[in-house]
Design a binder for these strands. Structure first.
Length: 219
DNA sequence: AACCAGGACGTGA
DNA sequence: TCACGTCATGGT
């Protein structure tokens, strides 16, 4: 039997579809209605539906590096209000305004440079799907950010590994903890059917489960 | 009041 | 290659 696939079904039965990646204003809801908060879309694996939503997910992937999502939402909303949640707007915005907008998400000096670098790259793409190597070559985009963009923004079935993933696997006794990013990524990709919805949902479920593990311990 | 949050880069060994 | 310091704000 397949341990990782069986575990996925357990998690799904326990928590249900998570609806990643959250968007500020998905189709069907006005921005004011979303109450300035990311909207999840459980069971819908067709998003993003527009280049704008795709770009929003990519920026979120950068801004959430070692940062709580709640802080990222503030930054995304600020950018949206400054009309800089588009690559053209980002290219035009003043440096100090940009940093002020993303300040709540932390590391604002580095992240300002990162999202500017990415905005230029995104424009040059012209709707094409980038390769993992192209993304990794950009300053500020490491393995997890690249995989998050590919999986949730560009709909490429590649598995995302993060701190939560490691925590769950360690708690289950399936890894020691010193394994490399790519080693853990390969574990999943070698044992699971390469399916977009499965990969998207699995990572989201691992995050939810890891948060529950932490919550049961203390806090 | 330390500690962590949906990491990545620069450096030295 | 790899361990370690740095980056920064916000919530618990």
């Amino acid at each position: 039997m397949n341990t990782l696939l069986a575990f996925y079904h357990q998690l799904l039965a326990c928590y249900g579809p998570q609806g990643w990646w959250p968007l500020l204003d998905p189709p069907g809801e006005s921005p004011s209605q979303s109450g300035s908060r990311g909207v999840y879309h459980p069971g819908n694996y067709d998003l993003p539906a527009t280049p704008g939503q795709r770009f929003e997910i990519c920026l979120g992937a950068i801004l959430t590096q070692n940062t709580a999502w709640r802080s990222v939402e503030k930054a995304l909303i600020n950018l949206q209000q400054m009309k800089a949640l588009r690559p053209e707007g980002l290219e035009a915005i003043d440096e100090s305004l940009l940093k002020e907008a993303i300040r709540p998400s932390g590391y604002f000096n580095q992240k300002a440079k990162k999202i500017r670098t990415f905005a230029r790259f995104f424009l040059a793409l012209e709707e094409r799907t980038p390769s993992r190597e192209e993304l990794l070559a950009l300053w500020g985009i490491g393995p997890e950010t690249a995989d998050s963009m590919l999986l949730y923004a560009f709909k490429v079935p590649t598995f995302v590994v993060d701190a939560y993933t490691r925590r769950v696997l360690i708690a289950a006794g399936w890894i020691g903890g010193t394994e490399s990013y790519d080693a853990i990524k390969s574990m999943f990709e070698n044992q699971l059917p390469r399916d977009l919805a499965l990969f998207q949902e699995y990572h989201a479920l691992l995050v939810e489960h890891a948060k529950n593990l932490r919550g049961s311990r203390q806090e």
